[in-house]
Every structure is written in structure tokens, then in C-alpha cells.
């Protein structure tokens, strides 16, 4: 009974922290205030204050995580809504997504080699530009750490959303397909949220790219690891 109450409390803490931080983000809309970042920080502070270990937190937390699977399946819904646009621009989209997925993975694999990053750490780096639920599964499949992969995904997402406007200016990328694919393939969901600021077309491009990168990335990940002997 006590165990169930504790689990329920952990679920409640997570939901309240998320909803409160989502409100703050909506109000001030700085990229740095992204709810995943702020809510996670608050929960970690609470857990450390009450000396609760991550394993004990996950007794409740796993119930929230269990909704990740159906959420990824739910991405089929926006993809279906945009199927016409997807078909009309099929070749440029597929070309762009292939370049996006491979440039993200190959560059991070090369950098891991260059910086002499530890084998197990490097495996968690590879899926960093995929959307979180997919990155978790790809990292697990490669033998890396799921939570470390999520850290990379979050850093790539937040940092990408912050620097993308300057990079677009510098490389003179002005079209919705160019911007959408770049944001969706490098910064997944956070990049897609950022893409909404450029208009609906860029937004839909980015969400399509995010879903396609997830599919391509889960195949490409093991190949990149094999080629670079990580």
C-alpha cells in the first residue's frame, strides 16, 4: 500500500512540475526555459533534497514512460494529415532527410573519435539527433545508455533551436523545406517546435523529417557504429 502511495506521489510530482514549467515556457518563451529541461531540474532537486534514488523514483516514473510507445505510434496521425504534401515533395524530402540523418551521425562519430571519447559513452552519442523515444531504443540496441542518450538528445534539441536562426542566416537557407528538414533532422521535437515560428510549411516539413529520421536513423545507427568501429 505504502509503495503504491509513493509511486502515485512520484507521478503527481512529475505531472505538476511539467504543467507548471510548460506554463512558464508559454509565458516567457525563451528557448532555455524548455519544460523538459526545467521540470527535470526541479524533479532532480526535489529527489536530492529528500534523498530519493532514481530507481525508487522510477517505481512511479515508469508509468509515465510507458506512454512513450503509443506516443511514437501517434506520430502516424500528423504524417497521415500531411501525406499529400509529403508525396508532392517526396524526392527533395527524402534526399534532405538522408543527408540530415547521416551528417548528424557521421559528424558525431568522427568527433567522438577525434576527442577520444570512451567506447560506452560514444555509443550513447550516436542517436543524439533522433526524437527521444527512438533515441532511447536505438541507444539501448547499440549497447549505450538510454538516459545518457536522452541527455545528448536534449542538448542537441535545445542548442539546435537556439543556434539555427544564425546558421540559416550564415548559410543563406531561406526555403521552408531547407529550414524544416534542418531543424527536424538535427533537433527533432524541439526543432520542430522552433520551426513553427517560421510558418506552417516549415513546421510540417520539420515534423515529417523528425518521423522519417527516426525510421532512417534506427537503421543507420548500427551501420555508422560498424563503419567507425565505435
Amino acid at each position: 500500500m505504502q509503495q503504491a502511495t509513493f509511486a502515485f506521489c512520484m507521478i503527481l510530482v512529475t505531472i505538476i512540475a511539467y504543467l507548471a514549467m510548460a506554463k512558464v515556457y508559454k509565458r516567457y518563451s525563451y528557448s532555455v526555459l524548455i519544460p523538459v529541461l526545467t521540470a527535470t531540474t526541479i524533479i532532480i532537486i526535489i529527489l536530492s533534497l529528500f534523498h530519493i534514488s532514481y530507481d525508487r523514483y522510477m517505481v512511479g516514473g515508469q508509468w509515465i514512460s510507458s506512454l512513450l510507445g503509443p506516443s511514437v505510434v501517434a506520430l502516424a496521425y500528423p504524417l497521415y494529415n500531411q501525406r499529400r504534401f509529403l508525396l508532392d515533395n517526396l524526392l527533395p524530402i527524402i534526399g534532405g532527410v538522408l543527408v540530415g540523418a547521416s551528417s548528424g551521425m557521421v559528424s558525431v562519430a568522427l568527433l567522438a573519435k577525434l576527442f577520444r571519447i570512451d567506447h560506452s559513452l560514444a555509443l550513447s552519442l550516436i542517436p543524439k539527433s533522433l526524437t527521444t523515444p527512438v533515441a532511447i531504443e536505438v541507444a539501448r540496441g547499440l549497447g549505450g545508455s538510454a538516459s545518457l542518450a536522452v541527455v545528448c538528445v536534449m542538448i542537441a534539441g535545445i542548442f539546435g533551436a537556439i543556434v539555427a536562426p544564425s546558421i540559416f542566416k550564415w548559410t543563406r537557407v531561406h526555403t521552408p523545406i531547407g529550414r524544416g528538414i534542418a531543424l527536424g533532422s538535427a533537433s527533432h521535437a524541439i526543432g520542430t517546435a522552433k520551426a513553427a515560428e517560421y510558418g506552417e510549411l516549415t513546421f510540417s516539413m520539420s515534423s515529417i523529417t523528425m518521423a522519417l529520421s527516426a525510421i532512417i536513423g534506427s537503421v543507420l545507427g548500427p551501420i555508422v557504429v560498424w563503419i567507425f568501429h565505435i
Binding site: V36, T40, L68, P133, S147, V151, A189
Partner: peptide
Amino acid sequence: MLFFIPTTVG
């Protein structure tokens, strides 16, 4: 985003 949080807390 909510469903990611338990994993990010890791």
C-alpha cells in the same frame, strides 16, 4: 514532452 521527463531525470 511529459513522457520524456522520467527518462531525463536519469
